[in-house]
Design a protein around this nucleic acid. Structure first.
Lengths: 192, 192
DNA sequence: GTATTTAATTGATATTATGTCAATGATATA
DNA sequence: TATATCATTGACATAATATCAATTAAATAC
């Protein structure tokens, strides 16, 4: 349906210009050259319209979350983890402006929060699998509770990603990935 | 001023009952037995009223953020870090219900987001100091960039704290603190 | 080619919340 | 007791939402 696509496109324009909270259905309809009621025919509300707009981001994130991880040595693990951190942050940077709007929307809209939360869940599930793998291979500390550490490790990555996105972290992507992966694999302290 | 205190108290009641977004000035005034306009005399808007209500939480968090950290050995560091994780999460749990509302408000209100962001900044600054201290004492890996790792470590703690608050993490506080501190100090992988 | 059904579009309407402000009421000071 | 100051109020203008009966357009039948 052309009108629907017009509205989605108009929505993107308005969301990028105004941010999530300030964007209004009135403006989106105006931008799409449709009458006020029209947007409500195709979308329950603003949240749902944005929900559709974030779908391709969701897909890309799912892809990153399901990357394979089967290192044979700790060194290999370190390298692979570094790569995954880079890919995760890079995926966000590829959609930087929409991601900024998305961050705002997560805080405001139940629907958007729900979708993002599913991304989180997938990542964390993936990391739990990875940790269990290296623990069983004898590479990793078995005292560690995979579900907890997976959560912590994911959050560390996500939040640093938001900071980079918002320009609050100066360091370049490689250095960030290197540091995070280093802490994760080797810990902060030297000499056991 | 009594009216002001009444409004603050009423605000707390309504925020706890309705959450941040659903709470309205109309309801708060009703709860305080004041006319509609009165709340606007004492507070610029809902955000500012909530901002005042979160002040004691802010204070408590600042206290936790400025706890001393001068370990003499890695073992001592581990213990102190574990304690600090526990204190941080416990401080949040002490105000569990208000913290839930706060989490919602962070996403919605610039004012609240700003205040919470200052808490973050203080914690991260404190952690940078702590990392630099142990690096200079030769206890910690000097390749690591303190500012990056401080950020990551803080975020890991903050997000896990929110999860515990919302009942999304089953493990008990000690186990959580133990695991996070373990990852932070020793890393996930064994045998260098 | 016209009539009829079905689908798409519309904007007026009811609703709900916000923030402002002139007017009123209460209290302290001269 | 008069007057000045301060506190309180609720009606109002504004802005956004979601709904829906009415209109317009398109597709199908005859």
């Amino acid at each position: 349906m052309q009108t629907r696509l017009n509205l989605l496109h108009a929505g993107k324009v308005i969301f990028l210009k105004e941010g999530f909270q300030k964007a209004t259905m009135t403006e989106i309809n105006k931008q799409a050259n449709t009458g006020y009621g029209t947007a409500y025919v195709y979308f329950k509300n603003k949240d749902e319209l944005f929900g559709e707009l974030m779908e391709n981001i969701v897909e890309k994130m799912y892809e990153v979350a399901s990357l394979p991880f089967e290192p044979k040595t700790s060194e290999e693990a370190f390298e692979q983890i570094k790569t995954q951190v880079r890919l995760f942050i890079q995926a966000a940077l590829d959609e930087q402006e929409m991601m900024k709007v998305l961050k705002e929307a997560i805080g405001v809209s139940e629907i958007v929060e729900g979708k993002w939360s599913q991304i989180r869940t997938r990542f964390i599930a993936g990391i739990i699998k990875d940790i269990t793998f290296v623990q069983e291979a004898g590479m990793a500390n078995k005292e560690i509770e995979a579900s907890l550490i997976a959560r912590g490790w994911y959050y560390m990555n996500e939040q640093v990603m938001w900071d980079i996105l918002l320009g609050e972290v100066a360091e370049d992507l490689n250095r960030v990935a290197e540091n995070l992966a280093l802490l994760y694999t080797r810990g902060l302290y030297v000499g056991k």
